Computed example of a mutant assay.
Amino acid sequence: MAAGQEGDVHVLGSRQRSQPAPAHVVWRSLRDPYQVGSRPWLELRDDEVPPRVVAGYAPVLLVWSSLWPHRPGDEIRFDISRGLPGGDCALRWTLTTPDADLPSESTLGYLRHRLNYLINNRLRLSHGQ
């Protein structure tokens, strides 16, 4: 997927997939990935930092600051669509940047792959699937 642009914000990547937990549970897992009693899923690499919650509206929207200190302006937006009551939900992550200087294709591929792994593998498995 090529980087797109929304106003002054460039979309670097986006992916939607179902999560095997209700929207409010997924939202809480994103809001506090190190919540006591939850399964650990956000395992950061040496070149990553814990995200800060920049904005949120439970249980449908949450925005993180960048995981990468070398890309401090990036944000990760999570849009959560409710499924059936008590059932699963759909989760879309979208990586954006205000920077006009876009990352190289190899960096972009790495960032997308890393987010997809964390959200559509690690987070998903933490909810039992």
Rank of each mutant, 00 (worst) to 15 (best):
A3N: 08
H70D: 12
P40H: 12
D88H: 10
W27S: 13
V11W: 12
H10Y: 15
H24S: 15
F78D: 03
S104C: 03
A90W: 15
P103C: 09
M1A: 11
R39E: 09
E75I: 02
L115M: 02
V49C: 14
W68P: 00
A58V: 03
L30K: 08
R112L: 05
D8V: 09
T96I: 05
G37N: 06
F78N: 10
L125R: 12
I80D: 02
G86Q: 12
D79F: 04
V53Q: 08
H127S: 02
T96R: 02
D74N: 11
L61H: 13
L123I: 06
R17M: 12
R52V: 05
R15E: 05
P51R: 03
L30C: 10
S81A: 15
D46W: 06
R122C: 13
R82M: 09
R122H: 12
M1W: 02
E6K: 13
P103N: 07
G7R: 09
L125D: 12
G128H: 09
V11K: 11
A55K: 04
L30F: 07
A2L: 06
D101Q: 14
L67S: 04
E75H: 09
E43P: 06
P51I: 02
Q5W: 06
G7Y: 06
G13V: 07
E43W: 00
P59R: 05
S81N: 12
D101L: 13
R28W: 03
D32G: 08
